[in-house]
Amino acid sequence: MTFWGFMEYAAWALSAVFGLYIVTDWLRTDATYPEDVLTSSREGEIEAMTEEHRM
């Protein structure tokens, strides 16, 4: 096998590893934490805590 032929297989393999990591972690996270915790984020937290927007 040529060097670049090997690189093509290596790229497929690495892509699969990254994909597998993401999917595994995603499923594990969703199974571990309740949905209301995962989707509890709200915008404007820093403003709500530090500024009242009164000049």
Partner: peptide, 26 residues
């Protein structure tokens, strides 16, 4: 001004609207 430190490790990205997990301010 709030009476707690929002940039602390424990409170960063979380706040009074019920946020338990927020994006990280780093």
């Amino acid at each position: 001004m709030s009476d707690f430190d929002i940039t602390s490790d424990t409170m960063d990205g979380m706040g009074p609207h019920g946020t338990k997990v927020g994006l990280l301010r780093v």
